[in-house]
Design a protein around this nucleic acid. Structure first.
Lengths: 190, 190, 190, 190
DNA sequence: TATGAATGAGAATTCATTCAT
DNA sequence: GATGAATGAATTCTCATTCAT
């Protein structure tokens, strides 16, 4: 494996475990099995490692066609979330690590912000595409926020061991809310 | 104001702004207006500051009697959340700061974990006390998780500027889900 | 027990175990069970503790009348050494501790030098008083040096666990040397 | 001269003059003419300097063939001692310095203990090889101890300015004791 | 490309000592 | 006499970064 790659992997692991500041570049070199000078040869300054790491986040844009089940919001959301989980599972630590450094590194912060926006946009798109009839836009917003937050929480908060089943139930609850409201709002002709 | 207190306030402010690691104790002394040595006289090592800060988190146990509105889950939850927000607003930075350090400081981590448990327990208690008829326990769990997570997110993630109205709408959506399910589950008895 | 005394005892113990420099006055206060300020109240500066400790060395001047056995150098020396050992056994650590600090503290160095001189003078006096006939003054000097050094070594070097019997044998060897020389020098008709 | 070597020499000199604890690493850097950081680059922590210094002690194993004069114990011992003195004279300060730090640094303590054992073994070997007839083993032990202690004392105690002639006389006294005893024990066979 | 010695600006921490009470 | 907060100089050690080779 090329040295650059080894360095990045070591950095990822160490940043995740001890934090960015608390990880000396010398330690990264050590773990990567490369001489100390090489780290700065590839990444002039330490924060460059973070920048490079950001680019390793997997693409989180899902092909919505594949996850939407028309008429079934709960199932659609669940497929979306499962798909996202799959992609991120390989880089759970990376995701968490970046989350932690977002406060002090604007590159990271900006990247995560964009990802969150993409996320919430996708959730909303799935809800709409799944075709719940006549729910208010505000409710769709709320539901999207709840779902996106649940996903984000899972992907960013470390040591988070929620059972998958629990997520499914939460999604189903949200879906039923949307449907109930819709139902409640509709039939009577409002 | 006693020197110890001045030091803690300075630490809180600086940790919140720059992070624990990135804040030199010398800077804390400077901001607190005390000599460098005094910081270590009161807090032998730097992490002791974090420990002391943890103890400054406001008590988050709410008098549930005062927030529950029987028969109105949405309103009850909203009152609970508003109450919690009020308490934490004074220490929003503190809360966020601790959240960030939880990974590397077990004292902090443990404190936050306990707080989260208290939070979720209170949400559930409020839902039950508000008296939604016949919803499944699993749904109450899911709803509690969604609400607790929403609150926790607000209190821990920095720069989070969600409008209060949005929170109310989310709570209302969750409440309606509980009620809808209840209705759906009990077609006969209603 | 008066605080001053408690402080001195604590200092003695700690200096012996960790050395003068490596023992903080705060630690002395702690071990003595007195407030930190009191140490400096009684002993303005830290080296004053050493000075006070020097004065606690037991008097090593032995009543030579009581140890000399005329005609038996070996026995006389043994009695002297045994007597000295008895006095110092109570303060073995003190003795060793001061030895260690002699290099950096002239008060201590001077005290130990005087003690060594007293010691060697006493050894010589005992040899002479025990009455070996006609040994050369130079031999008495050498013997005195050997004996004094043996005693000094025992009293100053820590962790020195020589068996008492061994000391007796060494003394006896030295005595026999003196006698042999005397004998060798004599008979031929001086 | 390589920087590492310059640092070690400076450390040796300063430790000898002021003691280990009382010598700041910054001062070592200064005297060595290197930047402060380099001292810790080569010797991670300060005691590592002591460890490195221990390894600089000259080998004290003497070729016994060269010093033993059969039939003349006094001369043999004198040659041994002179040889040892020659080797150590270059590192007299080093030797003394280590002696002082032995109490607090086990690496040093252990090294010195081994050296003392080697020393006493060599003294005994020389006595035996010089061939004093029929002296008791206990006497050889005693003589060895006396000689070894004399040598050790010279090499470890600072500011020790004994005249060489005095050492010769002491050795001669010990030798004569061995011979006298031998003679006394073996009146017949001689 | 690679390397590892070199650099120097801090960082946390220690601690003797002072001093107001 | 006693106390413990306060002081600040000094010390060890860390580490990102540079750079000659």
């Amino acid at each position: 494996m090329p040295a650059r790659e080894r360095i990045l992997r070591a950095a990822e692991r160490l940043f995740a475990e001890f934090g960015f500041q608390a990880t000396p570049t010398s330690r990264i070199a050590e773990v990567a099995g490369v001489p100390k000078g090489l780290v700065h040869y590839h990444f002039r300054r330490k924060p460059d490692l973070l920048t490079a790491l950001v680019e390793r986040l997997p693409d989180e844009r899902v092909d919505l066609q594949r996850v939407v089940v028309r008429g079934d919001v709960a199932e659609s959301l669940h497929r979306l979330v499962t798909e996202l989980d799959g992609r991120l599972s390989a880089s759970r630590v990376l995701s968490h690590l970046l989350w932690r450094e977002a406060d002090t590194h604007s590159v990271v912060r900006e990247a995560l912000r964009q990802r969150y926006e993409t996320l919430i946009a996708q959730v909303r798109a799935v809800i709409l595409a799944a075709g719940v009839p006549a729910r208010s836009p505000a409710d769709v917003d709320s539901a999207s926020a709840l779902v996106a937050r649940a996903v984000s929480y899972r992907h960013s908060v470390a040591r988070h061991t929620e059972e998958p089943e629990e997520m499914r139930r939460e999604l189903s609850l949200i879906a039923s809310a949307l449907e109930a409201k819709a139902g409640a709002a509709e039939p009577t002709g409002r």
